[in-house]
């Protein structure tokens, strides 16, 4: 048990350190909870999992992993692949939204320009107003 603790505490600390960094970013509103929740859960579960290995080292073996490190490696890669997928969908959605917004701004500006030109035209046609 002590050996496991010695072997995995560094990995667990790194994961929990990253989780703390994400929490700090959340507190400072630099990232949104919606976009970082899965990442946070992954880091916490890996961090807690590495501690859990010291208490229940049979879990990775029960899942078919000869070494706990293989389990962590697989879980990390799987988690990051899933995170990449969610990031990809978010980026794609934002990309489409930003394109639409640039287009809409251009169309609104075009309409404003036309209305301004129309207004100038109408004002030019009006007889000069009499002073009271």
């Amino acid at each position: 048990m002590e050996n496991s603790l010695e072997r995995y505490w560094l990995f667990g600390m790194i994961c929990l350190g990253y989780a703390a960094a994400v929490l700090m970013l959340l507190l400072r509103r630099r990232v949104t909870l919606q976009s970082s929740l899965i990442y946070l859960l992954l880091l916490l579960s890996l961090g807690v999992g590495s501690v859990l290995m010291t208490i229940a080292p049979g879990i990775p073996a029960a899942m078919g992993f000869e070494l706990p490190s293989n389990f962590f490696f697989t879980a990390s890669i799987g988690g990051l692949a899933f995170l990449y997928l969610t990031a990809l969908t978010t980026i794609s959605r934002l990309e489409l939204r930003s394109i639409t917004m640039v287009q809409e701004v251009a169309l609104i500006q075009e309409e404003l320009d036309r209305n301004e030109a129309l207004l100038r035209d109408i004002q030019a046609r009006l007889p000069p107003s009499r002073e009271p």
């Binding site: 640039v102 287009q103 169309l107 075009e110």
Partner: peptide, 25 residues
Amino acid sequence: VRVARLRRNLGIGGAVQTGLRLAAR
């Protein structure tokens, strides 16, 4: 002529769709 100015370069597809959107609406 009428001018729709895109604030960012969207590429030919984004530019053409801007015009098609205006025509449709």
